[in-house]
Structure formats: C-alpha cells, structure tokens
Amino acid sequence: MAFTDVETAQVHEAVTSDPTGEDLCKLGILYSTGQGGEVDYVEAHKWFNLAALMGSEPAKYYRQEISDQMSTFEVASAQRAAREWLSTRH
C-alpha cells in the first residue's frame, strides 16, 4: 500500500490530535515499508500495537508479521515506546 505525500502528512497530523486505529495502523505501515524514510520496525511495531489496542484487526496481523523479523529486545523497545506514548495521551 503506497501513500501520497498528502496522505502521509494527514496520518502524522492525526496522530497529534485524535487518532483512530486506522490512522495508527497507517503510520505503522509507513514505518514498516520505509515510505518517506528508512524502514524502522521498532517504530512500526509501536504504532501497530497502539492501533491493535484501538481494535484494528489489520494492525494485529502486521504487528505479528514484523515481530517475526525483530529481536526480543526490539519488540520490548517497541512495547515500551507504545506505553510511553499512551502515558502522554492521558
């Protein structure tokens, strides 16, 4: 799935306001595919994890897919980053 520059900007904007699970899943896709930068599985996992918490079924699938390519340390780092992001939202 490819995103236009406008869609990429919209996703980043949504994350700073009131994101949906779909927004967070899209951000995970951006990081997992390297669209607009380098591939970053830790960051992608973080966003997929947060999207999954919001009920996104695709995010659950994508999170598992990239987890298989990550070390235990990387997964733990992503989970920690997701918790930190959640703590700043409340």
Results as ranks from 00 to 15, higher is better:
His12Ser: 03
Ala76Gly: 01
Glu43Asn: 02
Gln10Met: 12
Met70Asp: 00
Val39Ala: 01
Ser87Gln: 13
Asp5Phe: 08
Glu22Ala: 13
Thr33Asn: 10
Lys60Gly: 09
Val11Asn: 10
Leu53Asn: 13
Ala78Gln: 01
Ala59Asn: 06
Gln69Cys: 00
Val39Asn: 00
Ala52Asn: 07
Glu65Leu: 10
Tyr41Leu: 13
Arg80Asp: 07
Glu74Gln: 15
Thr72Ser: 14
Glu74Thr: 04
Gly36Ser: 06
Leu30Phe: 09
Leu53His: 04
Ala59Lys: 02
Leu53Thr: 02
Ala14Arg: 10
Val75Gln: 01
Thr4Arg: 03
Ala44Ser: 06
Thr88Tyr: 09
Thr20Gln: 09
Arg80Ala: 10
Ala9Cys: 03
Val6Gly: 04
Phe3Asn: 02
Arg83Phe: 09
Ile66Ala: 05
Phe3Glu: 06
Ile66Cys: 03
Ala76His: 05
Val42Phe: 02
His90Thr: 12
Trp47Lys: 06
Thr8Met: 15
Glu65Lys: 13
Val75Lys: 03
Cys25Ser: 14
Ile29Ser: 05
Leu24Glu: 08
Gln10Leu: 05
Glu57Thr: 11
Thr8Val: 11
Ser17Thr: 15
Gly36Arg: 03
Ala81Ser: 14
Pro19Gly: 05
Arg83Gln: 14
Val15Met: 01
Arg83Asn: 08
His90Glu: 12
Trp47Arg: 05
Gly37Thr: 08
Asp40Val: 02
Ala78Glu: 00
Ser87Asp: 14
Glu7Val: 08
Val42Leu: 03
Gly37Ile: 04
Val75Phe: 01
His12Tyr: 15
Asp5Val: 11
Gly28Cys: 10
Ala82Gly: 06
Thr33Trp: 00
Trp47Ala: 07
Ala51Glu: 11
Thr16Ala: 14
Gln10Ala: 12
Gly55Val: 07
Pro19Phe: 04
Lys46Leu: 03
Glu22Trp: 01
Ser77Val: 00
Tyr31Cys: 13
Ala44Thr: 05
Val6Phe: 12
Ile66Leu: 08
Ala78Asn: 07
Asp40Phe: 05
Asp23Ala: 10
Glu38Gln: 14
Gly55Phe: 05
Lys46Gln: 03
Glu43Asp: 00
Thr33Tyr: 09
Glu13Gln: 09
Trp47Met: 08
Ile29Lys: 11
Ala78Lys: 00
Tyr61Thr: 15
Gly28Ser: 04
Asp23Cys: 07
Val11Glu: 04
Trp85Cys: 09
Gln69Ala: 05
Arg83Lys: 14
Ala78Ile: 00
Gln79Met: 12
Pro58Glu: 07
Gly37Leu: 09
Arg80Pro: 06
Gly21Ile: 03
Val6Thr: 12
Met1Ser: 13
Met1Ile: 07
Ala76Arg: 10
Asp68Lys: 12
Glu7Cys: 13
Tyr41Lys: 06
Val15Cys: 07
Thr72Arg: 07
Arg63Phe: 02
Thr4Ile: 07
Gly36His: 08
Gly21Gln: 05
Glu43Gln: 12
Thr88Trp: 07
Gly28Gln: 08
Arg83Gly: 10
Lys60Asn: 08
Leu30Ser: 06
Cys25Ala: 13
Val42His: 06
Lys60His: 02
Thr4Asp: 07
His90Ala: 15
Lys46Tyr: 06
Thr16Asp: 14
Val39Ile: 15
Val15Thr: 05
Gly37Asp: 12
Glu7Tyr: 04
Arg89Cys: 10
Ala51Trp: 01
Phe73Pro: 00
Phe3Arg: 04
Ala82Pro: 03
Glu57Gly: 01
Thr20Leu: 11
Val11Tyr: 12
